[in-house]
Simulated scan of single mutants.
Amino acid sequence: MKLPIHPIMEQSFAVIDREIGEHKFTSGEYAIVQRVIHTTADFEFAQLIKFSPGVIETAIAALQNKTPIITDVGMVRQGIANLVAQTFNNPIIVAVEEAPVALPGKTRTETGLLSCWRKFPEAIFVFGNAPTALLAFCEVLKNTSVKPAFAIGAPVGFISVVESKHALAKTSIPQIRVDGRKGGSPVAAAILNALIVLSC
């Protein structure tokens, strides 16, 4: 199944191609970088996005197998829901919505993430907003042999953001992450949407 592309997006991709010029990305990696730049108009993402070996092939298989997708916040779900529904219709669960009340000393998103992990440890995990949830996720991974399908680590901000991405980088799970302070729900959604397009 080939998903249609809007003419304005096609024109935007052509502009991005011209401005980036020669690069060392694989075709799959470039499709992701291109879509993130299209979403943000920020070419610095070409230096910030990092891919673990084989993650794109792993991600494609997980999406095609209808693996559940756990997002940290509702904005990420909003950004991916349309393409997910058009393609593999994976279940989407929002971590923060799984926790009406936070556990002591934790945020609601962190609390919800831990609940989602217990229910769906082999899911796809997408972080676009909450570094506390990403840190909790990485901590859980230290004490289990069960591995998630893959993770997208792209929280944005100043507090614990860089640390959460460093923690993810130290894990062995397949991952795409945005190093540094930049990221956000639109970026996380763009990465997953690009993977969905590659899966079709």
Rank of each mutant, 00 (worst) to 15 (best):
A61H: 13
V156P: 08
K119D: 15
Q175E: 13
P91L: 06
K119Q: 15
K50P: 00
V101S: 13
T26L: 06
L63Y: 02
I32G: 05
C116D: 13
I159M: 12
G184D: 15
K2H: 10
Q47P: 08
F125C: 09
I60D: 07
G128W: 05
A81G: 00
G74V: 15
L141C: 03
G128P: 02
T71D: 04
F158S: 01
K66Y: 15
I49R: 07
S52V: 08
N193E: 07
A99K: 00
K182I: 09
F13V: 11
C116L: 03
M1F: 15
N89D: 10
I56C: 09
L114V: 15
A190W: 09
A46P: 10
V94G: 08
L48G: 03
P148R: 02
T111E: 06
Q175P: 03
M9E: 07
A169C: 11
A136C: 12
G157T: 07
A46V: 11
A188L: 07
T171C: 01
E139V: 05
I56D: 07
I159P: 01
P53Q: 08
E22I: 11
Q11N: 14
D72S: 01
L134F: 01
N90W: 14
T67W: 02
M1P: 08
I191M: 12
V178L: 04
A130W: 07
V140G: 09
D72F: 03
A61G: 11
S199K: 08
K142R: 14
Y30I: 10
F127H: 00
G157W: 11
A14P: 12
C138D: 03
Q34M: 10
P4D: 00
F125I: 11
F120M: 06
G21F: 07
S52D: 13
D42C: 06
I49Q: 13
V33E: 00
V55K: 02
T171G: 04
F127C: 03
I92V: 14
A123F: 14
S172N: 11
K24I: 15
V101N: 12
C116Y: 04
F25N: 01
Q86D: 12
A151S: 13
I37W: 05
I60R: 09
A194L: 03
L113F: 03
V156M: 12
V161G: 02
A169R: 14
E139H: 11
A31R: 04
